[in-house]
Design a protein around this nucleic acid. Sequence first.
DNA 1: GCGACAG
DNA 2: ATCTTGTCGC
Length: 221
Amino acid sequence: MKLERRHSWSLSPKEAIALQNDLRHEVIADRPLDLSAIRTVAGVDVSVKNEVSQAAVVVMTFPGFEPVETALAQRPTTFPYVPGLLSFREGEVLVEAFEKLRHTPDVFIFDGSGYLHPRRVGIASHMGLWLGVPTIANAKNRLCGTNQESGPERGAWTPVIDRGEVVGAALRTRPGCKPVFVSPGHLADLDTTIELIMATSPKYRLPEPIRRAHKAAGVFG
DNA sequence: GCGACAG
DNA sequence: ATCTTGTCGC
C-alpha cells in the first residue's frame, strides 16, 4: 500500500525526540472505531537477529481470523533500543513491509505502545500518521504511567495514568494472566481500542494478529 | 541524585 | 528483543 507520508530515519536520539514533539500534535487518539465496519485487521511485529531486523505484517479477516496476506521485509538494524524511541529502531523496516502490502487493512495492531507514551507518540501512533489508517497498540509491558491492578477476570481493566492524563489501559485478555497494556495509536480512541483488543484475543493473552505476525517475523520468515 | 524504562 | 531447561498449573 502507498503511505501518506515518510521521512528520513537517519536521526540522532535528540532529533528523534524533537520530531516526536512535532508529531504529537497531529495524533488523533479520541476517534471511536466502528467495529461493525471492520473486515480485515493486520498484526505488526519485528524480530532482531544478528544485526538484522525482519518486519512482518499479517493481514487477516475479522472476525474469523483467516489469513489474507503476509508481507515481510529485512534491513540491517541501526538505531539502538531506547525506551520511548522504539519507532526509530523499527520504523524503517516496517515501512518497507507496508509498501509491499497489496491489501489495505481496516486497522493495524502493533506490538508496542501508542498514545501510552511519554510524548504520546508511541510506534503505533507514529506509524499511524504514516499509514493514514487507524492503528491501535498492544504492549506486553507498560512504558510509562501508573495503574491499579485490574480484576482477575477476562475483560477487566483499569486506566493507565501518566502526568494526570488517561493514556491507556491495563487489560486482562485472559483470566489469571498478566494484563496487556493497550492504547489508541492514531484515528482510534481508548474505549474502542479495548473492544477490538478483546475481540481479537478470544483465546490467548495476545491478539491473534500479533501472534501471527510474531511467528512470521521469527527466526524463519 | 534515584528509580523507571514498549521491544 | 534475545539467551535457554525445567517446571508449575489447567
